[in-house]
Every structure is written in structure tokens, then in C-alpha cells.
Design a binder for these strands. Structure first.
Lengths: 201, 201, 201, 201
DNA sequence: TATGAATGAGCTTTCATTCAT
DNA sequence: TATGAATGAAAGCTCATTCAT
């Protein structure tokens, strides 16, 4: 019997393999959402079997959880230093706010796939039995709190302002994606935030 | 044996039936998105067969199209009068802008399921082969245009302002859904729009 | 494209199809038991798709239930007349007992597959979460009651006698199956029952 | 990071481990039969990997064979002394028969799981391609022979009597299991055997 | 205006097994 | 003495769809 193109059954280091899978999973998930994507297709894209995927993550849901865990770690690593470069305290001057938020937007603008991933999961996850429901609920409350503290010395309504900032981030990113990124996301952000945090007269 | 316990076999008027199906479809779609929902389950929820659904809409995609058509008509009916009550021209004073936008938000706040429907479809539809891709692309460009014209006499950067308005609408609605509607969406809107369209000094 | 042996998609009457499936299911189940048999293979043996089977019975468990229902009806039809030919009252003379039991054994001897079906399901079903647990529990209690009433005028310990009769039926049938039916089941039965219900001296 | 929470990693003696696995296997097999049980689940219950199980027994079938071997040895050890306490010859008086059989039943009554194991395997194994087919065929012929010799001086039809004894053992045990062991198996046995081996008048 | 039978493709998951470590 | 990665096959089941009635 001819050995017709049986893949070399490449044996990989555990962490490497997991990471490779999760990277591909981001693409798949960001295209179809949790309900729409299939680990079958993911496996194909990764060059291994469905059973191979499940060997690493146990179940479709397990895969999602692992993915969110990883993203959380990465985001934490990237955002925390921004929030408090030297003394790790939440910033409070208008300038530091602007710098921080701008940095966040600039970073996001470089990974549109992640934006799309979060956009779709976050939206799916408003219904309570979605496996990422708690994740996004918790995360967005935390973000809201950080933003609120960040602007607490600058505006009379810190929570509402925090909501507006969060809304604008998500909303502008969405438009940016829909319009195939033809406009300058960071420039648009600057325009927006300047109205929410107006310069001291 | 007599056919005693067959369901009422509601032989319905065609249009009524279609509408009933679409109403149920909104719930299903808003929970799982286009990829995640199934016409099988929809049929069950409607009390008819999968083939019955298909009889009316031809295919899953046909159902979505029909649904978007219907929503478009309804939205048009509701929004157009708001935009130009007496002379159907786009308004331009700050007050009329605020009134219009407030009315939109107030209306949305009364139909959270529709909000969720649009939120999820809009997000799924950023990828070009989604059946609602064109719909949302077109619609959001149109909305952006309307908003831009609406504020063209009030701000120096009408398109950016339009973007910010659109972003805030979507973003605040999303927070509102995620937090189980515990805050006052319209009040939050008033706070937000007052920063985007500041009162003349 | 060549139409390579696509089966004619034979469209059958509902009840006929169900019966055909159930008949095949008996063979499959009697060979492997509920856990061991697969509706996949059953479908193949029936010349239709797995989905086709499930269209009729909903699930593997549904199929088993339907099968047991059918068997119950058939057995009732066959056994009841035996138990009380003319007046439908439970018999009580030794002769009528012997006649009845002999008829049961003779009937069983003609359908070894059914014997094997019951043997395996009955055994699997001693564990409470088996889908046929209740069925066999109920059925055997009923049978025990019938036997007990049947012999109540003939022996001092009717329930124990009933147990012995039931045990002998099942046990001898099992030996008969294992030994490829090389001995005469009915003759062996006669020998056995004559010790349990000895002739009046 | 220190490898803090790794399980005790019980590096076990080979024979001990095999025995431990087989003990768990009895539970699993007695619940689902050979076709229904899975070495995956067995592994989980044993606290080791599927590959771990396979390391010891080679294959699922190998495991079953090993299990039957072990049981055979244990049963032999327990039953042989009963059959011929002092001179290892088959007993022949009615009293010694009764004693022996009673001892067997008493022993069985103490290990219901084993009863269930044999019940299900024995039943599955009537079909010739079952891996335990030969085992049970051989074993039951042997048992039948022993019983026949045992009663050869007491009854006119020793083989039939042997069949009846074997049938009653299995049948009463089955009822006992199904009825959650609420009746006294040994007492019921005494009643049954007294009819098969009636006291000399 | 719908249903009912049936399908092909796909889903998530489990299974027994192999092989290198 | 075991594990860990990986697989091919199969499991039960759901999906969207077709077609005759």
C-alpha cells in the first residue's frame, strides 16, 4: 500500500502545540464566533486531527476557556505597564490619561483580528449561558472601574465618562473593521477622546 | 382511530405566519447569531416543521434576508418621522438633533431584543462572506451620512462626530445589555451626547 | 457525474418502515446489547441513513423504548390467550398450568432471537440507569405475580414456586442458546416443571 | 515553579497494579458488559492513563482474558475444596450435595458484583465471536459435568438435573439482583433445591 | 399551506490503539 | 512502570435541504 501523503505526525512540545492551536483558533473564532466555529475545521487548519485538538483542551468549551485565559494574560502584560509606567499607581492627570488610552488604541490597531475576536465573543456572551458570559462580565466591570478611577479627578461624572470611553473604543473599532480599516483609528480616537476629556479652559 | 390529539393545526394566513416566524426568529438569532441558530429549533419554537419554515423562506439565508427586510421597513417607519417630522428634511439645530437622537435611544430602550439582534448580526457581519455583510455595510454608511448631515452645521468635524454618535449608541447599548439593563440607558445617553454636541457657550 | 449505486431512496409507509427497522434492531440488539449495538450499523443493515433511523425514533433510547413497546404488545397478544383460553381467568389446575407453561416454552423455542434479545437486555437492565430498567423490573414482577396466582392452589409456597419457574425458564433457555440449541428445550422443560409441580400422589 | 500538586504518582508493584486494575474492571464490566465498558473510563477510575492500562494488558480483549483467568483461579480455589473436602473426589450423598451447593450459593450471595459480572458476560458470550465465548462454553460444560456426576447416584436423569440446578442458580441470582437483593437468596435456594433433589421417602 | 420521509454533510465527543519518551 | 501526543474510526446526534404528497 502506498503511503499517500500521510502527514509526518509531527510530534510537538506541549506548550508550543497548544499555542499554535490557540493562534489558529483566534482566526476561526473571530470569523464565526463560538457557536459558528468548529473544532473540526480548526483541526484541519492546524494540520492535526479533531481528536488531537481535544487531547489538548478536552472540549470545545475547554478550548475557549484556555484561549480566554491566554488572552487575559497577554493583555494584562501589555496594558498594566501602560496604566502605570513608573509607580504602578493609576494615573490621574489628563495627559497621562490621554497617553494611556492612546497607547491602548494604538496597540489594538495593530491586531485587528484580536479586536474582531473580542467584538464577536463579547457580543455573543451577553446571553448568560454563553461559556464566556462571566469572563466578559467580569472583565468589563474591571475595565470600567479602572477607567472610572483614571478620570475621577478630571470629570464630575467619572462612571459615566468611563462608560463613554469604553463605548467609544468598541464602537470606533467596529466601524474601523466594517470599513476595512480605511480610516485612521488612532486619529479618530484622538478626536473622540478630546470631547470626552476636554482640555482645561 | 380518530385524530383526537393533533395540535390545533393552525392553518394560518400566509403573511401572518411569516410574521410569526420572523418574530420567533428574532429571539433565536439574537441569542446565537446567524451561524449559531438553527431553523430546526426555530421550527420547534414556532410549532411547525423545518420543512414548513423552508416553505416560507426557501433557505436559512432567505429567512435572514426576509428578516432584515422586515426590520428595515419597521425601522424606517419609526425613524424617518423622527428625523424630519413636518418637512422630511434633515434637521439641523442642536435641539432637534438632541430630540431626534433621544427619541431613537428611547425607542431602542424599549426593545432590548432588537438591540441584541442587531448587535450580534452587525458584529458577525464584519466578515465579507456573511449573508448580512452588505446589509450592515450599506446601512451603517447611510446612518453615518444621516448623522453627518444632521450635525454638519453644529460641529467642525461632522463625519467624526457622526462616528462618535454611532459608536456611543452601540457601545452604551452593549453595556446596558451586559449589565442586565440595570442602568438608565437614556440618561446615560444624555450625558454622552452632551459632550459630543456641547451647548453653545 | 456517474450515478454510482445511489440507492433508490425507497420511500416507505411509516408503520412499515418502523416495523422493518425494529425487526433488524432485534437482531442487532440481541447480538451486542443496548450499549454495544450502534444505530449506525443498524442503519446500514436497514439500507438507510443513520439520520433516517433517527427520523423515526428520535434517539437510540427512543428506539429501544419503541422496540420494547412493540414486543410487549406482541407478547401480550400471544400469552394472554394461553393464560386463559375461554374465560380469561387465571388457571388453577395442575394440568392447565402445565399446558400453559409448555405453550410458552414451545413458543419461545420458535424464536431464539427473541430469547436472546430478552436475555441480554434483561441482564444489562439490572443496573438502574439502564433505559430498560423499569421495563424489566415491572415486567418481571408482573410475571411473578401471574405465576404465583397460577400455582396458588397447587403448592404451599406459591411465590417461591413462581420464582423457581421463572428461573428455570430463563436458565434453561440460556443453556439452550449457548449449546447452539442442540437439546430439546421443551423436553427439558417438561422434566424441570414436573419437579416443581409434582403430580399429586 | 515546584511540582507541587502532582498526584501521589503511585509507582506500584506490577502485580499489585494489575490486580487493582482488574478489581476496578469488574465493576465497570458488570455494569455495562464487554461491549459497553471502555478502558478509557476504567483508566480514569483507576487513576492512570488509558495507555497505562494498555501497558499492562495489551488490549481491551487482553484485559478481559486476564480478568477471566484471575476469576477462574479464584473460583477454583474457593469451589474445589467445597466439592471434595477430604478426598477430592466428587461427593455423592444427598447431604453432601446440599451442603456443597448451599456453600456455593452462600459464597455468591456475598459478592453480588461478581454475580452481575458473570451474568452479563455469560449472556453476551452466547454469540460465537464474543471474546469470552469459549471461556463460558467450556466452563458451563465443565460445571454441568460436575453437577451431573454429583447427582448421578441420586436421580434417574443426572444431566437434566444438572441443567436444572445450573438454571436455578443463575435464574434466582438474576431475580435477586433485579429486586435489589431484598429477598434471602440462600433461603430461596434451599426451597428450590429441595424440589430438585427431594428427600428420600 | 404545510408535512413527512429521507439524505449528506457536519457536529462534538469517545474509543482503542500506537509509539516515542 | 508508566505517560503524553496523536491518530483513525466510530459513536450519537443535528443541520439545512429536497422532494413527493
Amino acid at each position: 500500500m502506498l503511503d499517500v501523503e500521510t502527514a509526518p505526525r509531527s510530534r510537538m512540545n506541549k506548550d508550543l502545540r497548544r499555542e499554535a492551536i490557540l493562534t489558529e483558533a483566534i482566526r476561526a473564532l473571530s470569523e464565526k464566533g463560538y457557536h459558528g466555529f468548529s473544532i473540526n475545521e480548526l483541526a484541519r487548519r492546524c494540520g492535526l486531527t479533531t481528536a488531537g485538538i481535544l487531547h489538548h483542551f478536552g472540549s470545545k468549551q475547554g478550548l475557549l476557556i484556555a484561549l480566554l485565559d491566554m488572552r487575559d494574560r497577554l493583555d494584562q502584560q501589555a496594558i498594566l505597564p501602560l496604566l502605570a509606567p513608573e509607580d504602578r499607581r493609576v494615573p490621574s492627570t489628563r495627559d497621562s490619561c490621554l497617553t494611556t488610552l492612546r497607547a491602548i488604541m494604538a496597540r489594538n490597531a495593530e491586531q485587528p483580528e484580536i479586536i474582531r475576536l473580542y467584538a464577536i465573543l463579547r457580543t455573543e456572551a451577553v446571553v448568560p449561558d454563553h461559556p464566556a458570559f462571566t469572563f466578559f462580565r467580569t472583565r468589563e466591570m474591571a475595565v470600567l472601574n479602572v477607567f472610572r478611577d483614571m478620570v475621577s479627578d478630571l470629570v464630575p461624572d467619572p462612571l459615566s465618562t468611563a462608560r463613554q470611553i469604553l463605548a467609544l473604543i468598541g464602537g470606533l473599532e467596529m466601524q474601523w473593521l466594517r470599513e476595512s480599516r480605511i480610516f485612521d483609528l488612532v486619529a479618530e480616537w484622538d478626536s473622540a477622546i478630546s470631547k470626552i476629556l476636554p482640555p482645561p479652559s
